[in-house]
Deep mutational scan, measured.
Amino acid sequence: MDETGKELVLALYDYQEKSPREVTMKKGDILTLLNSTNKDSWKVEVKITVNGKTYERQGFVPAAYVKKL
């Protein structure tokens, strides 16, 4: 869990989004878990840094590609 009590997951593999509802992640990324009720895909939040500014983006990733921490 992070400092706000949200559950975290670790990306086990790289994943490139295939639709606007998904998010891209790299192996080793730590993501905030938002919903894990679907056995196939979990909703997560990723933090992306562009030019020194951090943005948050929500979307789905394959459940088999992440592990709860």
Score class of each variant (00 low, 15 high):
residue 43 K to A: 08
residue 25 M to C: 04
residue 56 E to K: 15
residue 59 G to Q: 01
residue 49 T to G: 03
residue 42 W to E: 00
residue 52 G to H: 05
residue 44 V to W: 02
residue 18 K to V: 08
residue 31 L to C: 04
residue 9 V to A: 08
residue 60 F to T: 04
residue 14 D to E: 03
residue 14 D to F: 06
residue 5 G to F: 13
residue 4 T to D: 12
residue 61 V to L: 03
residue 29 D to A: 06
residue 23 V to W: 03
residue 22 E to Y: 06
residue 65 Y to S: 12
residue 49 T to L: 10
residue 58 Q to D: 05
residue 60 F to P: 00
residue 62 P to Y: 06
residue 49 T to V: 13
residue 34 L to S: 01
residue 23 V to P: 02
residue 32 T to C: 10
residue 20 P to D: 12
residue 53 K to V: 15
residue 56 E to A: 15
residue 34 L to F: 02
residue 10 L to M: 13
residue 32 T to E: 06
residue 3 E to F: 13
residue 68 K to N: 05
residue 48 I to T: 08
residue 7 E to L: 11
residue 44 V to I: 05
residue 27 K to Y: 04
residue 31 L to F: 06
residue 26 K to A: 07
residue 49 T to N: 09
residue 19 S to G: 12
residue 53 K to E: 12
residue 51 N to L: 09
residue 33 L to D: 02
residue 9 V to N: 00
residue 11 A to I: 05
residue 41 S to A: 11
residue 62 P to L: 07
residue 9 V to D: 00
residue 54 T to E: 10
residue 23 V to G: 02
residue 66 V to L: 15
residue 66 V to K: 01
residue 19 S to P: 03
residue 62 P to C: 09
residue 61 V to N: 01
residue 28 G to M: 04
residue 64 A to I: 11
residue 67 K to W: 06
residue 5 G to E: 13
residue 65 Y to C: 15
residue 53 K to H: 13
residue 33 L to K: 01
residue 24 T to V: 02
residue 1 M to K: 13
residue 2 D to S: 13
residue 63 A to D: 03
residue 68 K to R: 12
residue 49 T to Y: 10
residue 45 E to L: 15
residue 21 R to I: 13
residue 19 S to Y: 07
residue 18 K to S: 10
residue 54 T to K: 07
residue 65 Y to Q: 06
residue 52 G to V: 02
residue 62 P to V: 07
residue 69 L to E: 02
residue 63 A to C: 07
residue 9 V to Y: 07
residue 33 L to H: 00
residue 7 E to Q: 14
residue 30 I to W: 05
residue 26 K to P: 01
residue 16 Q to H: 11
residue 19 S to W: 06
residue 35 N to Q: 09
residue 38 N to M: 09
residue 43 K to E: 14
residue 54 T to C: 12
residue 7 E to K: 09
residue 44 V to Q: 00
residue 27 K to N: 03
residue 43 K to D: 02
residue 43 K to R: 10
residue 27 K to R: 10
residue 10 L to I: 15
residue 44 V to S: 00
residue 56 E to D: 11
residue 44 V to G: 00
residue 29 D to N: 04
residue 40 D to I: 11
residue 37 T to I: 08
residue 68 K to T: 07
residue 10 L to T: 06
residue 9 V to L: 11
residue 40 D to A: 08
residue 16 Q to K: 12
residue 56 E to P: 13
residue 30 I to Y: 04
residue 13 Y to F: 12
residue 46 V to S: 06
residue 29 D to E: 09
residue 11 A to R: 02
